[in-house]
Amino acid sequence: MTDETLHIQAIDAFIAATETADPDQRATLLSRALAPDIVFWGPLGRGVGREAVSDFITEVVRSHPSGPCRMVRTTRVDAPGEWARFGWCYEDAEGRVLLSGTDVVHVTLAGDIDEIVVFAGPL
């Protein structure tokens, strides 16, 4: 399996975790995608650990005033070595884009994301 394949699998599992309202399914997906001590640099600050990422998904992604929204990967995964980046958008139930951005992730040799840096909005 190539490094790029590992990166894509981890990123897509992370995105799938944002899609589910089921906390157990989210925890399973996050355990496939993220290292236990993941460092998450999000729009609300820095969090550490899978639970911090799960809390962000619950509080921000799943609890949006527009109702449950979804995160969609909008670009291919660009994966030079141990780093990867991808574009995303956050859309409401009707498919309207509420926010878009780019995430940069560091992926371990085992294929787990151990750092995510979220860049929300245009540069």
Rank of each mutant, 00 (worst) to 15 (best):
G49H: 02
L30P: 09
V39F: 01
V105G: 05
R46K: 15
V77L: 04
V72N: 09
G101H: 06
I116P: 01
W88Q: 10
H64L: 04
E82N: 08
G95H: 10
E19H: 10
T74N: 11
L123K: 01
L109Q: 05
A79S: 12
A110Q: 07
V48T: 11
D114V: 02
T102M: 13
V53I: 07
Y90E: 08
T5Y: 05
V53A: 06
S100C: 07
A13S: 12
L44F: 12
S100I: 00
P122T: 08
D22L: 06
A17H: 08
I116D: 01
S66C: 05
A52L: 08
L98Y: 06
T74F: 03
E94K: 12
D24Y: 03
V48I: 14
E59G: 15
T28P: 02
L44Q: 12
T2I: 00
G87Q: 11
S66Y: 02
H7A: 11
G81I: 10
V77Y: 06
A120L: 03
P65N: 06
V77C: 06
G42N: 14
T74G: 11
E51G: 12
P43C: 12
L123E: 12
C69T: 10
G111R: 00
S66D: 15
H106A: 13
R32E: 14
V118G: 04
R70K: 11
G67D: 06
A21E: 14
L34R: 04
D3M: 14
A120N: 05
I15F: 15
F86T: 12
Y90G: 03
L98M: 09
V39R: 09
R46Y: 07
I57G: 08
R50P: 13
T5G: 08
I15Q: 05
A52W: 01
F119I: 05
S63Y: 04
G101T: 11
R96Y: 10
A93K: 12
E4A: 14
I116T: 02
G47V: 09
S31V: 02
